[in-house]
């Protein structure tokens, strides 16, 4: 294991980030049903075989950007937020390969600021939305069994309750607003609705702690919390697409100084990729 981690540590940050990002695109493209992305990854693989330093070429990233932008433009109302981050990542890789100065420092700085902004906006949007703090958003997931999926996975009784709730909720469009429809849902256990509200607040607190953790000096506490956060989101929400991108940003932030932390983020990234390959998770 130590040898594996040492070998991983010898790879430059730019190369590791580029490889992870292209691997993500490769695995992500069939789920997107985006043919041009498949062509893009195919071209990238050919290029990797012919020229091992592909990731240092600005025009390589320029082509990738050129292939990602049309989808962003044509599907701007449908693409997830991580698609925007993918475009930002490619832009950053273009800039880094173009200037070729302080690569690791530039990547780490950008990763830190980008992660801070992403989490700050995530917190801000939740705080300015009364619906969120009332538990609406989490309730939709919780009553249908889509939150804490793996926690309830082995309980058949709960599964039955979630299934019945899903059927009840599907009836809502049958009623006009003027009829004031109020469909009664079942709770799998007594304090389930309270748990939903606590979980809503807990999520905001966890995101604030994530931002704080980015600026902690104690590395074990910082990365310990962030890895725990990423794995918790993976288990509760299966946001594999977004988590993969967050892992790539964390790999950028860590650089190759802290070998065990880098290995932890690469392992989490591989876990996300595995989930995507077997068709699990949201993209």
């Amino acid at each position: 294991m130590k040898r594996l981690i040492d070998n991983l540590n010898q790879i430059s940050t730019l190369k590791l980030v580029s490889t992870c990002f292209l691997l993500f695109l490769l695995i992500y493209s069939p789920r997107l049903k985006a043919l041009y992305v498949i062509y893009l990854v195919f071209a990238a693989l050919v290029y990797v075989i012919v020229d091992k330093t592909y990731f240092k070429k600005t025009y390589f990233w320029l082509i990738i950007l050129g292939l990602l932008l049309p989808r962003l433009y044509s599907n701007i109302l449908f693409v997830g937020n991580h698609y925007f981050v993918m475009v930002y990542l490619v832009l950053l890789l273009m800039i880094v390969t173009s200037y070729k100065t302080n690569t690791d420092k530039v990547l780490a700085h950008n990763a830190k600021v980008i992660l801070t902004l992403i989490m700050s906006f995530a917190v801000l949007q939740k705080l300015i939305t009364p619906d969120y703090l009332k538990g609406n958003s989490i309730a939709m997931l919780a009553f249908t069994g889509n939150a804490l999926k793996y926690v309830f996975y082995f309980n058949e009784e709960f599964g039955q309750v979630f299934q019945e709730n899903t059927s009840t909720m599907a009836e809502l469009p049958q009623f006009a607003y003027s009829e004031n429809p109020r469909l009664k849902l079942q709770s799998p256990f007594k304090h389930f609705p309270q748990l939903i509200i606590w979980f809503s607040y807990f999520t905001v607190i966890a995101e604030i702690l994530f931002i704080t953790a980015l600026y902690l000096k104690k590395q074990w506490l910082k990365h310990g919390f962030i890895v725990f956060f990423l794995l918790s989101v993976l288990i509760t929400r299966e946001e594999t697409g977004f988590l993969s991108i967050l892992c790539i940003l964390m790999i950028m932030l860590v650089g190759n100084q802290k070998s065990y932390y880098r290995a932890a983020y690469v392992a989490t990234f591989i876990l996300c990729m595995s989930f995507i390959i077997v068709g699990k998770g949201e993209l």
């Binding site: 997830g80 937020n81 995530a122 939740k126 939305t129 619906d131 969120y132 958003s137 939709m140």
Partner: peptide, 15 residues
């Protein structure tokens, strides 16, 4: 909707 458009408002509202 907060879900779309690059503002990172996922899960602020119901999908």
């Amino acid at each position: 909707s907060q879900w779309k458009g690059g503002g990172f408002g996922m899960y602020s509202t119901i999908y």
